[in-house]
Design a protein around this nucleic acid. Structure first.
Lengths: 199, 199
DNA sequence: CACGTGATTTACACCGTGTCAAGTAGACAG
DNA sequence: CTGTCTACTTGACACGGTGTAAATCACGTG
Protein backbone atom coordinates (compact mmCIF):
# COMPACT_ATOMS: atom_id res chain seq x y z
CA UNK A 1 0.00 0.00 0.00
CA UNK A 2 1.48 3.37 -0.96
CA UNK A 3 1.81 6.29 1.41
CA UNK A 4 0.48 8.78 -1.14
CA UNK A 5 -2.98 7.35 -0.54
CA UNK A 6 -3.04 7.31 3.26
CA UNK A 7 -4.26 4.14 4.91
CA UNK A 8 -5.89 3.53 8.23
CA UNK A 9 -6.54 5.53 11.30
CA UNK A 10 -4.61 8.85 11.30
CA UNK A 11 -4.21 8.47 15.04
CA UNK A 12 -2.42 5.17 14.63
CA UNK A 13 -0.25 6.70 11.94
CA UNK A 14 0.64 9.52 14.29
CA UNK A 15 1.47 7.08 17.07
CA UNK A 16 3.71 5.14 14.72
CA UNK A 17 5.54 8.28 13.65
CA UNK A 18 6.07 9.38 17.24
CA UNK A 19 7.29 5.92 18.17
CA UNK A 20 9.72 5.86 15.27
CA UNK A 21 10.93 9.35 16.13
CA UNK A 22 11.55 8.47 19.76
CA UNK A 23 13.34 5.28 18.85
CA UNK A 24 15.55 7.09 16.36
CA UNK A 25 16.50 9.45 19.15
CA UNK A 26 17.09 6.76 21.73
CA UNK A 27 18.69 3.97 19.79
CA UNK A 28 20.29 5.70 16.87
CA UNK A 29 20.06 4.77 13.24
CA UNK A 30 19.54 1.03 13.65
CA UNK A 31 15.78 1.39 13.58
CA UNK A 32 13.94 -1.92 13.63
CA UNK A 33 10.36 -1.86 12.42
CA UNK A 34 9.34 -4.45 15.01
CA UNK A 35 10.47 -2.05 17.74
CA UNK A 36 8.56 0.84 16.19
CA UNK A 37 5.39 -1.23 16.09
CA UNK A 38 5.84 -2.45 19.65
CA UNK A 39 6.41 1.08 20.90
CA UNK A 40 3.26 2.24 19.14
CA UNK A 41 1.30 -0.69 20.53
CA UNK A 42 0.41 -2.21 17.18
CA UNK A 43 1.55 -5.21 15.23
CA UNK A 44 4.56 -5.12 12.97
CA UNK A 45 2.31 -5.50 9.96
CA UNK A 46 0.46 -2.30 10.77
CA UNK A 47 3.67 -0.46 9.87
CA UNK A 48 3.59 -2.00 6.41
CA UNK A 49 -0.10 -1.20 6.01
CA UNK A 50 0.49 2.44 6.88
CA UNK A 51 3.79 3.14 5.14
CA UNK A 52 4.48 0.32 2.72
CA UNK A 53 8.10 -0.13 3.63
CA UNK A 54 10.92 1.20 5.70
CA UNK A 55 12.01 3.88 3.24
CA UNK A 56 8.58 5.48 3.07
CA UNK A 57 8.31 5.45 6.85
CA UNK A 58 11.58 7.36 7.06
CA UNK A 59 10.51 9.87 4.45
CA UNK A 60 7.18 10.41 6.18
CA UNK A 61 9.17 10.96 9.34
CA UNK A 62 11.20 13.65 7.59
CA UNK A 63 8.11 15.57 6.53
CA UNK A 64 6.53 15.06 9.95
CA UNK A 65 9.65 16.45 11.65
CA UNK A 66 9.74 19.53 9.45
CA UNK A 67 6.15 20.29 10.37
CA UNK A 68 6.56 19.51 14.05
CA UNK A 69 9.56 21.80 14.33
CA UNK A 70 8.17 24.48 12.02
CA UNK A 71 11.06 24.58 9.59
CA UNK A 72 9.02 26.91 7.38
CA UNK A 73 8.76 29.54 10.10
CA UNK A 74 12.50 29.39 10.70
CA UNK A 75 13.27 29.85 7.02
CA UNK A 76 10.80 32.73 6.82
CA UNK A 77 12.94 34.61 9.32
CA UNK A 78 15.84 34.34 6.89
CA UNK A 79 14.01 35.99 4.02
CA UNK A 80 12.62 38.65 6.36
CA UNK A 81 16.12 39.85 7.20
CA UNK A 82 16.76 43.45 6.23
CA UNK A 83 20.10 42.83 4.54
CA UNK A 84 21.73 39.90 2.80
CA UNK A 85 24.46 39.73 5.40
CA UNK A 86 21.86 39.55 8.15
CA UNK A 87 20.13 36.80 6.19
CA UNK A 88 23.40 34.87 6.18
CA UNK A 89 23.66 35.15 9.94
CA UNK A 90 20.09 34.02 10.36
CA UNK A 91 20.60 31.06 8.05
CA UNK A 92 23.50 29.90 10.18
CA UNK A 93 21.28 30.32 13.24
CA UNK A 94 18.65 28.16 11.60
CA UNK A 95 21.21 25.41 11.22
CA UNK A 96 22.34 25.85 14.81
CA UNK A 97 18.83 25.42 16.14
CA UNK A 98 17.38 22.97 13.64
CA UNK A 99 20.27 20.53 13.21
CA UNK A 100 20.17 19.17 16.76
CA UNK A 101 16.45 18.55 16.49
CA UNK A 102 16.58 16.40 13.41
CA UNK A 103 20.05 14.97 13.83
CA UNK A 104 18.86 11.55 14.95
CA UNK A 105 16.65 11.25 11.89
CA UNK A 106 19.30 12.71 9.62
CA UNK A 107 21.76 10.05 10.72
CA UNK A 108 19.19 7.34 10.22
CA UNK A 109 18.54 8.53 6.69
CA UNK A 110 22.23 8.92 5.93
CA UNK A 111 22.80 5.36 7.09
CA UNK A 112 20.05 3.99 4.85
CA UNK A 113 20.67 6.06 1.73
CA UNK A 114 23.13 3.50 0.42
CA UNK A 115 20.81 0.54 0.75
CA UNK A 116 17.77 2.31 -0.56
CA UNK A 117 17.74 4.40 -3.75
CA UNK A 118 14.45 6.03 -2.73
CA UNK A 119 16.04 7.34 0.45
CA UNK A 120 19.07 8.49 -1.51
CA UNK A 121 16.87 10.36 -3.98
CA UNK A 122 14.87 12.05 -1.23
CA UNK A 123 18.04 13.09 0.53
CA UNK A 124 19.51 14.42 -2.71
CA UNK A 125 16.36 16.44 -3.32
CA UNK A 126 16.52 17.88 0.16
CA UNK A 127 20.16 18.85 -0.28
CA UNK A 128 19.36 20.55 -3.56
CA UNK A 129 16.58 22.52 -1.89
CA UNK A 130 19.03 23.49 0.80
CA UNK A 131 21.60 24.59 -1.74
CA UNK A 132 19.01 26.75 -3.48
CA UNK A 133 18.12 28.46 -0.21
CA UNK A 134 21.76 29.27 0.43
CA UNK A 135 22.22 30.50 -3.09
CA UNK A 136 19.35 32.92 -2.63
CA UNK A 137 21.07 34.45 0.38
CA UNK A 138 24.36 34.83 -1.46
CA UNK A 139 22.53 36.23 -4.47
CA UNK A 140 21.01 38.89 -2.26
CA UNK A 141 24.40 39.75 -0.76
CA UNK A 142 25.82 40.10 -4.26
CA UNK A 143 22.90 42.28 -5.36
CA UNK A 144 23.62 44.57 -2.41
CA UNK A 145 27.25 44.80 -3.48
CA UNK A 146 28.59 43.03 -0.44
CA UNK A 147 30.07 39.91 -2.01
CA UNK A 148 33.84 39.92 -1.64
CA UNK A 149 35.98 39.96 -4.75
CA UNK A 150 37.19 36.63 -6.05
CA UNK A 151 33.86 34.87 -5.64
CA UNK A 152 31.03 34.26 -8.03
CA UNK A 153 27.56 33.80 -6.63
CA UNK A 154 27.77 30.10 -7.39
CA UNK A 155 31.11 29.42 -5.78
CA UNK A 156 30.28 31.43 -2.69
CA UNK A 157 26.87 29.78 -2.42
CA UNK A 158 28.33 26.30 -2.77
CA UNK A 159 30.84 27.01 -0.02
CA UNK A 160 28.17 28.47 2.23
CA UNK A 161 26.10 25.37 1.61
CA UNK A 162 28.94 22.92 2.15
CA UNK A 163 30.30 24.51 5.31
CA UNK A 164 26.90 24.41 7.00
CA UNK A 165 26.11 20.78 6.17
CA UNK A 166 24.97 18.49 8.99
CA UNK A 167 28.22 16.53 9.17
CA UNK A 168 30.46 19.52 9.96
CA UNK A 169 27.83 20.74 12.41
CA UNK A 170 27.89 17.34 14.08
CA UNK A 171 31.65 17.39 14.45
CA UNK A 172 31.82 20.92 15.79
CA UNK A 173 29.02 20.59 18.30
CA UNK A 174 29.88 16.98 19.13
CA UNK A 175 33.55 16.09 19.22
CA UNK A 176 34.66 19.73 19.46
CA UNK A 177 32.08 20.50 22.12
CA UNK A 178 30.75 23.77 20.72
CA UNK A 179 27.42 25.06 21.96
CA UNK A 180 24.73 26.02 19.48
CA UNK A 181 25.50 29.67 20.08
CA UNK A 182 29.22 29.18 19.61
CA UNK A 183 28.54 27.30 16.38
CA UNK A 184 26.41 30.16 15.08
CA UNK A 185 28.92 32.85 16.06
CA UNK A 186 32.01 31.14 14.76
CA UNK A 187 30.59 29.82 11.52
CA UNK A 188 29.06 33.22 10.82
CA UNK A 189 32.42 34.86 11.47
CA UNK A 190 34.17 32.41 9.17
CA UNK A 191 31.73 33.03 6.36
CA UNK A 192 31.55 36.80 6.80
CA UNK A 193 35.30 37.23 6.77
CA UNK A 194 35.72 35.03 3.74
CA UNK A 195 32.73 35.99 1.62
CA UNK A 196 31.68 39.52 2.55
CA UNK A 197 33.36 42.56 1.06
CA UNK A 198 33.17 44.84 4.12
CA UNK A 199 32.70 42.60 7.14
CA UNK B 1 40.15 -15.48 14.23
CA UNK B 2 41.44 -11.97 14.92
CA UNK B 3 43.14 -9.85 12.33
CA UNK B 4 45.95 -8.84 14.68
CA UNK B 5 47.36 -12.35 14.30
CA UNK B 6 47.23 -12.74 10.52
CA UNK B 7 45.79 -15.96 9.23
CA UNK B 8 46.27 -17.88 6.05
CA UNK B 9 48.03 -17.23 2.83
CA UNK B 10 49.11 -13.57 2.55
CA UNK B 11 48.49 -13.81 -1.17
CA UNK B 12 44.87 -14.78 -0.56
CA UNK B 13 44.58 -11.94 1.91
CA UNK B 14 45.93 -9.50 -0.64
CA UNK B 15 43.54 -10.82 -3.30
CA UNK B 16 40.65 -10.37 -0.89
CA UNK B 17 41.65 -6.81 -0.10
CA UNK B 18 41.99 -5.93 -3.78
CA UNK B 19 38.65 -7.53 -4.53
CA UNK B 20 36.97 -5.63 -1.71
CA UNK B 21 38.54 -2.39 -2.84
CA UNK B 22 37.43 -2.85 -6.43
CA UNK B 23 33.92 -3.75 -5.39
CA UNK B 24 33.68 -0.75 -3.09
CA UNK B 25 34.64 1.39 -6.07
CA UNK B 26 32.26 -0.28 -8.49
CA UNK B 27 29.19 -0.96 -6.46
CA UNK B 28 29.30 1.58 -3.72
CA UNK B 29 28.89 1.07 -0.01
CA UNK B 30 26.62 -1.98 -0.11
CA UNK B 31 29.55 -4.32 0.04
CA UNK B 32 28.52 -7.95 0.28
CA UNK B 33 31.10 -10.33 1.62
CA UNK B 34 29.93 -13.03 -0.76
CA UNK B 35 30.79 -10.77 -3.69
CA UNK B 36 34.19 -10.01 -2.26
CA UNK B 37 34.92 -13.70 -1.90
CA UNK B 38 33.65 -14.50 -5.38
CA UNK B 39 35.77 -11.74 -6.90
CA UNK B 40 38.84 -13.04 -5.09
CA UNK B 41 38.09 -16.58 -6.22
CA UNK B 42 37.65 -18.05 -2.76
CA UNK B 43 34.70 -19.08 -0.65
CA UNK B 44 32.79 -16.62 1.44
CA UNK B 45 34.10 -18.22 4.61
CA UNK B 46 37.69 -17.50 3.66
CA UNK B 47 36.83 -13.86 4.33
CA UNK B 48 35.87 -14.71 7.90
CA UNK B 49 39.00 -16.77 8.41
CA UNK B 50 41.22 -13.96 7.18
CA UNK B 51 39.49 -10.99 8.79
CA UNK B 52 37.09 -12.29 11.42
CA UNK B 53 34.15 -10.17 10.41
CA UNK B 54 33.00 -7.41 8.14
CA UNK B 55 34.21 -4.58 10.37
CA UNK B 56 37.78 -5.85 10.52
CA UNK B 57 37.85 -6.33 6.77
CA UNK B 58 36.86 -2.71 6.31
CA UNK B 59 39.46 -1.50 8.78
CA UNK B 60 42.16 -3.61 7.14
CA UNK B 61 41.06 -2.04 3.88
CA UNK B 62 41.54 1.42 5.35
CA UNK B 63 45.11 0.68 6.39
CA UNK B 64 45.79 -1.02 3.09
CA UNK B 65 44.50 2.02 1.18
CA UNK B 66 46.62 4.44 3.18
CA UNK B 67 49.70 2.41 2.33
CA UNK B 68 48.79 1.91 -1.30
CA UNK B 69 48.24 5.62 -1.80
CA UNK B 70 51.15 6.72 0.38
CA UNK B 71 49.20 8.97 2.71
CA UNK B 72 52.31 9.35 4.85
CA UNK B 73 54.27 10.88 1.98
CA UNK B 74 51.47 13.33 1.29
CA UNK B 75 51.32 14.43 4.91
CA UNK B 76 55.11 14.79 5.00
CA UNK B 77 54.81 17.47 2.33
CA UNK B 78 52.60 19.43 4.71
CA UNK B 79 55.13 19.51 7.53
CA UNK B 80 57.89 20.32 5.07
CA UNK B 81 56.19 23.56 4.08
CA UNK B 82 58.25 26.64 4.83
CA UNK B 83 55.46 28.61 6.48
CA UNK B 84 52.30 27.73 8.33
CA UNK B 85 50.16 29.35 5.70
CA UNK B 86 51.84 27.28 3.03
CA UNK B 87 51.21 24.20 5.19
CA UNK B 88 47.53 25.09 5.23
CA UNK B 89 47.46 25.27 1.45
CA UNK B 90 49.23 21.96 1.18
CA UNK B 91 46.86 20.30 3.64
CA UNK B 92 43.93 21.39 1.51
CA UNK B 93 45.74 19.97 -1.51
CA UNK B 94 46.18 16.68 0.32
CA UNK B 95 42.41 16.51 0.78
CA UNK B 96 41.83 17.42 -2.85
CA UNK B 97 44.03 14.58 -4.08
CA UNK B 98 43.44 11.97 -1.39
CA UNK B 99 39.68 12.26 -0.90
CA UNK B 100 38.72 11.01 -4.36
CA UNK B 101 40.95 7.98 -3.95
CA UNK B 102 39.44 6.74 -0.74
CA UNK B 103 35.95 8.11 -1.18
CA UNK B 104 34.40 4.77 -2.04
CA UNK B 105 35.84 3.21 1.09
CA UNK B 106 34.99 6.25 3.19
CA UNK B 107 31.37 6.00 2.16
CA UNK B 108 31.33 2.30 2.91
CA UNK B 109 32.70 2.94 6.39
CA UNK B 110 30.31 5.82 7.00
CA UNK B 111 27.41 3.62 6.03
CA UNK B 112 28.44 0.86 8.43
CA UNK B 113 29.51 2.94 11.40
CA UNK B 114 25.99 2.90 12.77
CA UNK B 115 25.56 -0.84 12.69
CA UNK B 116 29.01 -1.62 13.98
CA UNK B 117 30.54 0.04 17.06
CA UNK B 118 34.00 -1.17 16.03
CA UNK B 119 33.74 0.70 12.74
CA UNK B 120 32.42 3.76 14.56
CA UNK B 121 35.35 3.68 16.97
CA UNK B 122 37.91 3.31 14.19
CA UNK B 123 36.33 6.16 12.28
CA UNK B 124 36.30 8.32 15.39
CA UNK B 125 39.98 7.58 15.96
CA UNK B 126 40.79 8.51 12.40
CA UNK B 127 38.88 11.77 12.68
CA UNK B 128 40.71 12.62 15.88
CA UNK B 129 44.03 11.99 14.16
CA UNK B 130 42.89 14.22 11.36
CA UNK B 131 41.86 16.93 13.76
CA UNK B 132 45.27 16.79 15.44
CA UNK B 133 47.02 17.20 12.10
CA UNK B 134 44.94 20.27 11.32
CA UNK B 135 45.55 21.68 14.77
CA UNK B 136 49.29 21.40 14.22
CA UNK B 137 49.04 23.51 11.08
CA UNK B 138 46.99 26.17 12.83
CA UNK B 139 49.34 26.08 15.79
CA UNK B 140 52.21 26.80 13.48
CA UNK B 141 50.36 29.68 11.85
CA UNK B 142 49.65 31.12 15.28
CA UNK B 143 53.29 30.73 16.32
CA UNK B 144 54.30 32.69 13.24
CA UNK B 145 51.87 35.44 14.22
CA UNK B 146 49.60 34.92 11.26
CA UNK B 147 46.41 33.80 12.97
CA UNK B 148 43.71 36.39 12.50
CA UNK B 149 42.25 38.09 15.56
CA UNK B 150 39.11 36.62 17.01
CA UNK B 151 40.26 33.01 16.79
CA UNK B 152 41.94 30.76 19.27
CA UNK B 153 44.08 27.94 17.98
CA UNK B 154 41.38 25.47 18.94
CA UNK B 155 38.46 27.22 17.29
CA UNK B 156 40.40 27.90 14.11
CA UNK B 157 41.69 24.33 14.01
CA UNK B 158 38.22 22.87 14.53
CA UNK B 159 36.84 24.98 11.70
CA UNK B 160 39.73 24.04 9.41
CA UNK B 161 39.09 20.41 10.27
CA UNK B 162 35.33 20.60 9.80
CA UNK B 163 35.40 22.50 6.52
CA UNK B 164 37.73 19.97 4.92
CA UNK B 165 35.79 16.87 5.99
CA UNK B 166 34.96 14.29 3.32
CA UNK B 167 31.25 15.12 3.18
CA UNK B 168 31.69 18.78 2.16
CA UNK B 169 34.39 17.70 -0.28
CA UNK B 170 31.95 15.19 -1.76
CA UNK B 171 29.25 17.81 -2.21
CA UNK B 172 31.55 20.38 -3.75
CA UNK B 173 33.28 18.05 -6.18
CA UNK B 174 30.14 16.01 -6.84
CA UNK B 175 26.88 17.92 -6.94
CA UNK B 176 28.60 21.29 -7.42
CA UNK B 177 30.93 19.91 -10.07
CA UNK B 178 34.17 21.40 -8.82
CA UNK B 179 37.45 19.96 -10.06
CA UNK B 180 40.11 18.92 -7.56
CA UNK B 181 42.08 22.05 -8.40
CA UNK B 182 39.06 24.30 -7.98
CA UNK B 183 38.33 22.67 -4.64
CA UNK B 184 41.88 23.31 -3.45
CA UNK B 185 41.92 26.91 -4.65
CA UNK B 186 38.54 27.92 -3.32
CA UNK B 187 38.72 26.17 0.02
CA UNK B 188 42.20 27.59 0.56
CA UNK B 189 40.91 31.03 -0.25
CA UNK B 190 37.99 30.64 2.14
CA UNK B 191 40.26 29.55 4.97
CA UNK B 192 43.00 32.10 4.32
CA UNK B 193 40.60 35.01 4.24
CA UNK B 194 38.84 33.90 7.38
CA UNK B 195 41.70 32.62 9.50
CA UNK B 196 44.89 34.37 8.39
CA UNK B 197 45.83 37.82 9.67
CA UNK B 198 47.46 39.13 6.47
CA UNK B 199 46.18 37.02 3.58
C1' DC C 1 52.45 -44.27 3.37
C1' DA C 2 50.15 -42.82 7.29
C1' DC C 3 49.67 -38.49 9.73
C1' DG C 4 48.97 -34.19 11.46
C1' DT C 5 48.42 -29.37 10.65
C1' DG C 6 47.02 -25.38 8.46
C1' DA C 7 43.85 -23.63 4.69
C1' DT C 8 39.52 -23.80 2.90
C1' DT C 9 34.85 -25.50 1.94
C1' DT C 10 30.10 -27.26 2.86
C1' DA C 11 26.23 -26.91 5.77
C1' DC C 12 23.67 -24.57 9.07
C1' DA C 13 21.48 -21.21 12.55
C1' DC C 14 20.07 -16.54 13.07
C1' DC C 15 18.06 -11.99 12.36
C1' DG C 16 15.44 -8.46 10.04
C1' DT C 17 12.63 -7.27 5.97
C1' DG C 18 8.80 -7.72 3.23
C1' DT C 19 4.63 -10.64 1.66
C1' DC C 20 0.50 -13.42 1.98
C1' DA C 21 -3.77 -15.43 3.69
C1' DA C 22 -7.06 -15.85 7.10
C1' DG C 23 -9.36 -14.14 10.99
C1' DT C 24 -11.47 -10.58 14.33
C1' DA C 25 -13.65 -6.44 16.46
C1' DG C 26 -16.37 -2.53 15.85
C1' DA C 27 -19.15 0.91 13.23
C1' DC C 28 -22.81 1.57 10.36
C1' DA C 29 -26.78 0.60 6.94
C1' DG C 30 -30.79 -1.68 5.72
C1' DC D 1 -30.39 -9.09 13.27
C1' DT D 2 -27.69 -9.50 9.26
C1' DG D 3 -24.39 -8.07 6.15
C1' DT D 4 -20.44 -5.41 5.01
C1' DC D 5 -16.73 -2.26 5.25
C1' DT D 6 -12.64 -0.57 7.65
C1' DA D 7 -8.69 -1.17 10.59
C1' DC D 8 -6.02 -4.14 12.40
C1' DT D 9 -4.11 -8.91 14.24
C1' DT D 10 -2.20 -13.39 13.87
C1' DG D 11 0.72 -16.61 12.09
C1' DA D 12 3.33 -18.32 8.60
C1' DC D 13 6.74 -18.00 5.12
C1' DA D 14 10.51 -16.73 1.56
C1' DC D 15 14.54 -14.16 1.02
C1' DG D 16 18.98 -12.10 1.66
C1' DG D 17 22.79 -11.31 4.39
C1' DT D 18 25.82 -12.30 8.48
C1' DG D 19 28.39 -15.17 11.35
C1' DT D 20 29.55 -20.15 13.13
C1' DA D 21 30.46 -25.22 13.35
C1' DA D 22 31.76 -29.29 11.32
C1' DA D 23 33.86 -31.67 7.59
C1' DT D 24 37.30 -31.94 3.98
C1' DC D 25 41.38 -30.98 1.32
C1' DA D 26 46.50 -30.13 0.48
C1' DC D 27 50.83 -30.98 1.68
C1' DG D 28 55.17 -31.38 4.11
C1' DT D 29 57.22 -34.75 7.52
C1' DG D 30 58.28 -38.95 10.04
Amino acid sequence: MSSSQPYGDPETRERLLRAAWDLALEQGPSLRLADVAARAGVSRQAVYLHFGDRARLLLALLVWGDEAFKLGDLLARVTEARTGVEALDRMVEVHATYSPRIDALARTLEAHQYQDPAVAAALRERLDFRRTAHRAVIGRIAAEGDLASGWTIDTAADLFFAVTLPVPWRELTGASGWSAQQYAERVSRLLRRALIAHP
